[in-house]
Design a protein around this nucleic acid. Structure first.
Length: 717
DNA sequence: CACGCGCGATTTTTT
DNA sequence: ATCGCGCGTG
């Protein structure tokens, strides 16, 4: 067997990891050290050299995207398709276990998955029903409480209430919430994991069967596993399994949602003969960038010692830019990107990353002003859009009548005269009879003591029945198509003003296309697979036509990516590190890791920028520059002076000049104008004066927008 | 039931 | 500054 393609591209420690003997392995993989490469080559090694069937490997990744990428890379490496590899997220794999063995844990085999949004809706409704003190509690907190406990593997009865009345109330709420889900055959994200854990834990035969099957268990992003995920892994590994986990304690940035990098220590205790391999050679960044990252991260007390190194050039110094305010910061960045572009580089080589989403606005304005196309990551994803969720709620109800959450969502959407009063009646009846809302609706129609005619409700029930009748034999996409058209959703969105309704309708037809091209090799009906897919993989963000774009994202979403040129902006104490993390040492260390993640995204050029004055939530803030900048050795940094003479920067010096220039409004209502990005339009309104003057323009192609005159560079036509 | 106003919250995000 | 939500009014 030719091992060359699998081993040749690897360095020595990587090769040791990939060829590791049958012993537990912990790979500590620094940023850019070839973590994914090691995992994919390990899988290829196991299949090709150790002749394991893909079917008997379990590989867990953090996101669906990572799972897909890994599978593709393995196939590429092996030069053949790999079927039946158990690769996916913890949630995806758990879902697979549950579908296979639902009956073993008294779960209806047609259970439906709810996402956090659905979960919050259920919680809100329950919250109201329970007459809880609104000053004391709120639904979001209770949602957090429930998920946190599930993530720790705790059922309500397992929580120590400590005679604490607050805690007791929360636990009761958790229990009531779970009862609702159980009754409607609904499973939330955390429940997928907890149920699967219980499934295996409570069924020794099944567990043994899977332990024998999955001799090798591979885990990516191990530092980000939470308690239940680790417990699941530990359980499935047993005494004979061979775990191969890859992670980087320095890149653990999800502590706030239950990730425990302590699992790295735990792992070495649980598997005493663990072989630890540290990957420190970096293939991404220049030496200066790595030195800065190393220096920064050594300020953390809790970490495994390691130091990234590279054979790459020293590279450029890290550029530090102090701006007057966030606008100057943004236009500085835009200017630098224009220079980069002029040198013949791609815009997509550039990432602007920030600590919090609110920072993107000023950056967007500057980029628009500089006519630089950009893409923001982190918006709503396809299956999270409300129109998509509406359509899927119909589909779910039509095929699974017990799904109360879906019924509640669409019973009066579009409005069909079934208001809050009626819904309360239905809920009451459901409670009395201990049935689903669907059955309660039918019961109400058939037995109404007050002689009330539930004609509207009857219409709704008939509609759902009709949808079922008429779509039963159709293909998935035709089912969805037909249900959407019967639902009245299209007419509803047609009435919505502006672009919005149109987009919604487009998205609905996009949903039908998605169903048409949907393929699944899961062992379940196409319908179930599609619905699970919608819940578990929220899909890409708004599909946009390919364009060479500057990339804007938070530091969190930048993890795993790399760019030749990176701007980290808003490097101020209070923003990064965030105010809410500064006083807690553990949280501060997480902020530092986050900064480390940001720095190590850069391949060639790294800018750290901050603003002395920043408008946040409508208030001016004055913060010192980030302590993280200070933690980078001075010989690696270079301060750029603010070049005030450059007309594109906005600051106090030129504000007067601008004010002078636009003291008289050149805009009258109806004036035709042209914008670099938005195209041509008509002025609708004008307000304010000086640098703050804004103009409302109706653009032919992109709808109406308010623009700040001093930035918009509008041409009069 | 639709609309509109006022109030409060506003770190990070995947599943 | 902005957005979403809840509640009151027409």
């Amino acid at each position: 067997m030719d091992v060359t393609p699998i081993l040749e591209p690897l360095n020595e420690p990587q090769r040791m990891a990939v060829t590791g003997n049958n012993e537990p392995m912990l790979i500590i993989a620094g940023a850019g050290s070839g973590k994914t490469r090691v995992l994919t080559h390990r899988i290829a090694w196991l299949i090709k050299i150790e002749n394991l069937s893909p079917h008997d490997l379990l590989a867990v990744t953090f996101t669906n995207k990572a799972a897909k990428e890994m599978k593709d890379r393995v196939e590429n490496l092996l030069q053949m398709p790999v079927h039946n590899l158990w690769i996916g997220t913890f949630h995806g794999l758990a879902h697979r276990f549950l579908r296979r063995h639902a009956e073993d844990i008294s779960l209806d085999k047609n259970f439906q998955i709810i996402d956090s949004d659905d979960q919050l809706r259920i919680i809100k409704r329950l919250f109201k029903n329970q007459n809880l003190d609104e000053n004391r509690w709120n639904p979001k907190e209770l949602q957090y409480f429930i998920n946190q406990n599930k993530d720790e593997g705790l059922r309500p009865h397992q929580i120590n209430k400590k005679n604490d009345s607050d805690l007791t109330q929360q636990v009761n709420f958790y229990k009531n919430y779970q009862d609702i889900c159980d009754q409607s055959d609904l499973v939330d994200f955390a429940e997928l994991l907890l149920r699967t854990y219980e499934l295996l834990h409570n069924n020794p035969n099944l567990l043994n069967q899977y332990r024998k099957k999955f001799k090798h268990l591979l885990v990516d992003e191990f530092q980000d596993t939470n308690v239940i995920q680790y417990a699941f892994l530990r359980l499935l590994t047993g005494d004979d399994g061979i775990p191969f986990v890859v992670g980087d304690d320095d890149q653990s940035i999800y502590r706030w949602r239950g990730a425990k990098m302590e699992h790295i220590d735990q792992f070495q205790k649980d598997f005493a003969d663990t072989r630890v391999i540290t990957l420190e050679q970096n293939y991404r960044s220049s030496e200066n960038i790595l030195k800065a990252a190393n220096a920064l991260i050594t300020n953390n007390v809790t970490r495994m010692p390691k130091e990234l190194w590279t054979e790459d050039n020293t590279g450029e110094l890290i550029q530090i830019f102090a701006a007057f305010n966030e606008k100057e910061e943004a236009s500085f960045i835009a200017g630098k990107i224009q220079d980069w572009e002029k040198q013949g580089h791609n815009r997509s080589d550039v990432a602007i990353i920030y600590r919090s989403n609110a920072q993107s606005r000023a950056l967007e304005e500057a980029l628009i002003n500089a006519a630089l196309p950009y893409k923001i990551y982190g918006g709503l994803r396809f299956f999270e859009r409300s129109e998509i969720k509406d359509a899927l709620a119909y589909l779910r109800l039509v095929y699974y009548r017990k799904d109360d959450a879906s019924l509640e969502r669409i019973i009066n959407k579009p409005t069909r005269g079934i208001g809050a009063k009626n819904i309360d009646l239905i809920r009451g009846r459901a409670k009395e009879n201990k049935t689903s809302l669907w059955e309660a609706s039918i019961h109400l129609i058939e037995n109404n003591p007050i002689g009330k005619k539930f004609s509207k409700l009857n219409f709704f029930v008939s509609l759902i029945n009709k949808m079922r009748r008429e779509t039963d034999k159709l293909d998935l996409h035709n089912k969805i198509d037909h249900i959407i058209h019967l639902s009245g959703l299209i007419e509803l969105y047609e009435k919505e003003k502006g672009e919005r309704g149109l987009t919604r309708i487009e998205n609905l037809s996009e949903l039908i296309s998605a169903a048409k091209s949907f393929e699944s090799d899961e062992e379940m009906s196409e319908l179930d697979a599609f619905l699970a897919h919608a819940a578990l993989e929220a899909g890409d963000e708004q599909a946009s036509e390919w364009e060479d774009c500057v990339q804007l994202m938070t530091v969190h979403s930048a993890k795993g990516l790399e760019f030749p040129m990176v701007f980290m902006c808003g490097m101020e104490d209070g923003l990064f590190p965030h105010q809410r993390s500064i006083s807690n040492p553990k949280n501060l260390e997480e902020e530092r890791r986050l900064c480390y993640v940001g720095i190590t995204r850069a391949k060639e050029l790294l800018f750290l920028t901050f603003a002395e004055q920043r408008k946040l939530h409508g208030q001016d803030n004055f913060s010192p520059s980030s302590r993280f900048i200070d933690e980078i050795p001075i010989e690696l940094k270079e301060e750029i002076r603010s070049t005030y003479h450059d007309h594109s920067y906005v600051n106090h010096n030129i504000a007067n000049k601008k004010r002078h220039l636009i003291s008289e409004s050149p805009f009258s209502i109806g004036q035709r104008v042209r914008h670099k990005k938005f195209g041509e339009g008509t002025v609708l309104a004008y307000e304010g004066q000086g640098v703050h003057a804004r103009v409302h323009v109706n653009f032919e192609n992109v709808g109406t927008k308010w623009l700040v005159v001093s930035y918009a560079n509008l041409d009069l036509l």
